[in-house]
């Protein structure tokens, strides 16, 4: 399997604060890579660096065989829904159409190919019935599907999704998961950041972060008690129950170590 992303000694910083200490990692081509770790562990910063939005302070980052900035036209980026201005007076169709601006530029004419790509993206995310609705009229799950459709409508070889299913209803989560699997089947490299162990376990490749790469590889290689203890400071108990470790409801208040149950790897 060739690699879509190769990082050698990559360090990511915000001024004096280190988001990712010098690290090596790789994201395979034509596969789903999940970036997982506690809040502030550097997941979104790594995604931004791969997108060419955050310049590494040190090291070498190769994306699709070149530098991230050069390959930007081949990368579709879906930002976190919380970082989007959802009060913008635009319809769903207009938001999704923005993805075509990557090829159209500031003045290119929206032609039949663009309209076909737009309709296909709306279909894939079950958004046709909502196409004329205003962004602020949608639920959180519907909005997130719009943002994913905006990424899909762009011609791309790599799809980056920043917490695409966080806080979503089951229907929207399932629609997005199907799209992610379909993208992978089409040979696209998909990278998602997540807090959800079940979502990460469904990926082909996992990178566990804690302001450094704690472990990377197949889910069963990464989700070991030692690695999770290292990343989260956890006591572990294997069970079928899914737990989001960043959900305050699952945080005991009187113990130093959080007690977390993770889904088994073999079901």
């Amino acid at each position: 399997m060739t690699d879509a992303v190769v990082a050698r000694g990559v360090e990511l910083t915000y001024g004096d604060r280190v988001a990712l200490a010098a690290s090596d990692f790789r994201f395979p081509a034509g596969a789903i890579t999940a970036l997982i770790g506690p809040n502030g562990s550097g997941k979104s910063t790594v995604l931004a660096a791969v997108a060419g939005l955050h310049e590494p302070a040190a090291g070498e980052l190769t994306v699709l065989g070149s530098t991230p900035r050069k390959e930007r036209p081949r990368i579709a980026f879906v930002p976190q829904s919380t970082k989007v201005n959802d009060l913008l007076p635009v319809t769903v169709r207009e938001v999704v159409a923005m993805g075509r601006y990557a090829s159209l530029g500031m003045l290119g004419r929206f032609g039949p190919d663009d309209r076909a790509a737009l309709d296909e993206a709306l279909d894939r995310l079950d958004l046709q019935p909502l196409a004329a609705r205003h962004l602020r009229e949608l639920s959180g799950g519907q909005r997130q599907r719009v943002f994913v459709a905006q990424g899909l409508v762009q011609s791309h070889d790599m799809l980056l999704l920043d917490e695409p299913t966080t806080g979503l209803d089951i229907v929207s989560t399932e629609v997005i998961r199907q799209v992610v699997q379909s993208e992978r089947a089409d040979g696209c490299a998909v990278v998602i950041t997540t807090h959800d162990f079940a979502e990460a376990r469904a990926a082909d490749h996992v990178v566990l972060l804690a302001n450094r790469v704690v472990a990377e590889g197949a889910p069963e290689e990464v989700f070991t008690p030692e690695n999770l203890a290292d990343a989260y400071g956890l006591e572990l108990n294997s069970s079928h129950e899914h737990v989001d470790v960043d959900d305050p409801a699952h945080r005991p208040t009187q113990t130093l170590h959080r007690h977390v149950e993770i889904p088994p790897l073999d079901d």
């Binding site: 997108a51 939005l53 980026f77 930002p79 635009v90 923005m98 993805g99 601006y101 530029g105 500031m106």
Partner: peptide, 22 residues
Amino acid sequence: AVFYRSFLVLSFNTDKAEMLGL
């Protein structure tokens, strides 16, 4: 008119505008 798309996507999300080359 010339900057309409840039202004629109900038108003939506700055990173998205950067990614789309706007």
